[in-house]
Design a binder for these strands. Structure first.
Lengths: 247, 247
DNA sequence: GAGTTCAGTTTCATCTGTCGAAACCGAGTT
DNA sequence: AACTCGGTTTCGACAGATGAAACTGAACTC
């Protein structure tokens, strides 16, 4: 059931670009290893990608990073294609059902960033500024993003020199295993006192994780029992979002 | 002389992607025309790009749009590569020098979107929510984005059925000509009563416009004379930003 | 309903542009 | 000096990309 008529050279170039969803900086040889392509093949494709501005070389490390063309293109994702906006209605629906704040996170290197949020309408609510950066080491969404990341990334996360001392790594790994089995994560006053959260992954068409959807609120309201009730709803919402992406 | 060793097929695939910075939706034949490639070549490259998720077909029109992979990649632009963040320090510097609100816009189809902003610290100031969408027909930044857009886009802008009646097209075109000559645009109570603005373009390495940088404030403070003073500073800031992009 | 047009798709023979092995270079290390 | 390990270049062989042309199928005209 193979793919259609497709151009190998172009395919390989795109594969190289996709490597950068796993690590923000890569050298020629690293890419060659990851893609299992010959060094000279990668060399020429990198030259092409760089010339067109899709990749750029870091002045210091001489490694490659994503270039401004990616930004240029992403700025032209039409409104309905930008997941942060595309998902908005679905997130609002979930917020209205659960009556707690709903956020969407993506991993960026060894951190996560909140790319979209709709806040609960209740007087006491979790506020969630878009654009905020947080660690992967704590919080339901952080754990989801780590749990479903590629093994190489997971290794990197644990090797991070900034790993917080008060989080036990082996316990963390056990949690990630559990999260992979359950398909969702919870946190109670982990990252921030007084708030708890539930989170589930959103996958791309190749099974790689794209984002984490999270519901968060005050521990008083969002109790363990309440979270249990929330799980099916958030999973359902995530499923619908996933479908929107892949058409 | 010319570029290094580069892979033609990959180059062409990337060229096809770049077509979508000009129009959000394109059919096979349109792309073939724009890139001056053979239909069957484009056909195969499109199949490749679609298979990898870089393009997606619109269910209704059957035309191609940018796919979720672009979003995925853009989410992984490292902090220092995302111009909206990369430019922040420079925008703050400008804000501190001029003491008025500084915004960054990109064109999205026939609209513009504010992708970044730092507000003036004065009590009376222009507020500038990030993410807001505005027309290209009025406002300094709108005119800059239109003035330096590709001719095809400009034609589209003028052909827009939603073009506001109270803006005279031939006058608008004359203004755009002037803006191209001057290298900057101004507006006084155009889009919004009580506010005036100055704006300059930021170009990518191939000379195509990427964004518009704008300074805006209350007409009382940001008078015509004051705007004249501002011009060299905003041009200087834009120049520095441009350099950051292309390394 | 025969004829026309146009977008998208497939075929196929041609030949060129891509590929990988291997050599090369230059900077660090031992 | 010998070795290692990135990155770069060379070069001959051949897979694979290419474009002309043919085909399909829908939409439109007369």
């Amino acid at each position: 059931m193979e793919g259609k008529k497709t151009v190998r050279a172009a395919e390989r170039a795109l594969d190289i670009l996709l490597c950068f969803t796993r690590q923000p900086e890569l050298s020629l040889t690293e890419i060659a290893r990851m893609t299992e392509l010959n060094k000279s093949t990668v060399y020429r494709l990198l030259a092409t990608l760089e010339e067109k501005g899709f990749l750029a070389r870091d002045a210091e490390t001489d490694k490659y990073r994503l270039g401004f063309r990616i930004w240029e293109l992403s700025a032209h994702l039409s409104r309905t294609d930008d997941p942060a906006l595309l998902f908005l209605p679905e997130m609002e629906r979930l917020r209205d059902k659960i009556e707690e704040t709903v956020s969407l996170y993506v991993r960026d290197g060894l951190e996560r960033i909140r790319v979209q949020a709709v806040e609960s309408l209740q007087a006491i609510r979790r506020v969630a500024p878009v654009g905020a950066r947080m660690p992967l080491s704590v919080g339901a969404a952080g754990k989801v993003l780590a749990a479903f990341a590629e093994p190489a990334v997971r290794a990197q996360i644990l090797a991070d020199p900034d790993w917080p001392e008060n989080v036990d790594k082996s316990d963390y790994l056990r949690q990630l295993d559990q999260i992979r089995r359950d398909g969702y994560a919870t946190s109670v006053e982990e990252r921030e006192a007084g708030t708890s959260a539930v989170s589930v992954p959103i996958f791309g068409r190749n099974g790689n994780i794209l984002a984490a959807l999270a519901v968060s609120g005050p521990v008083g309201r969002l109790t363990l029992e309440r979270m249990e009730e929330v799980v099916p709803h958030i999973i359902e919402a995530a499923g619908r979002m996933q479908k929107m992406l892949t058409n």
